[in-house]
Amino acid sequence: MSVRQWAEFRTELPYDAIEDEIDFVEFPGRSVTEAIAAMLASLGYDVSAPIHAGEHGWELDVRANGRRFWLQITRIEEHDCYLTTQDMTWRIWRLQPSFEEFLTQLNKALRADGRFSQIGWFRDRKDETRAPHPVEAS
C-alpha cells in the first residue's frame, strides 16, 4: 500500500485569524483544527489541544495504543487549507491502529462533515495527482 499523507481541502468555517496593526497575533486555522480534533476524539483518539505554530498554522498531537500521529493545518487563504500528517511512532513491530488506518478514518470523517469539501490527497511534495483517498494499493 502507498500512503498519501498531504492533503488540500476547502472549509466553510469562519476565517479566524487574530491580527494587530502589524501582523498576525494568531494565524488562522484554529477553528478548523478544533473541528478536526473533535472528529478524532470521537473516533477514540487522545488528541492534544490545538498548538499554534506561527506561519505553519496549527498542530495536533494524536495518540492511540502507543501510536503517535502529528497533524499540521495551514489555512493559507480564506477557504483553502493544507493538511500535513506524519507517523511519529518509533516502533520495532507493527502496532494498531496503523498510519494507513488512521488516515482512512480521518479522510472519512472529513468527507462526512459538510464544513469541509474538495478534499484531495497527495503522495509527496512533487505529486500533482490529487486522489480522493489517502491510501491506495501500490
Binding site: 476565517y15 485569524a17 491580527e19 496593526e21 501582523d23 498576525f24 494565524f27 488562522p28 506561519e55 505553519h56 498554522g57 499540521q72 495551514t74 489555512r75 493559507i76 487563504e77 480564506e78 483553502d80 493544507y82 500535513t84 511534495r125
Partner: peptide, 16 residues
C-alpha cells in the same frame, strides 16, 4: 519540508 506557505493579514488584502 513541512512549510508550504502562509497567508497575508486581512489588512494587506489577505491572499496567500
Amino acid at each position: 519540508p513541512e512549510f508550504k506557505g502562509t497567508g497575508f493579514p486581512a489588512r494587506v488584502g489577505g491572499g496567500r
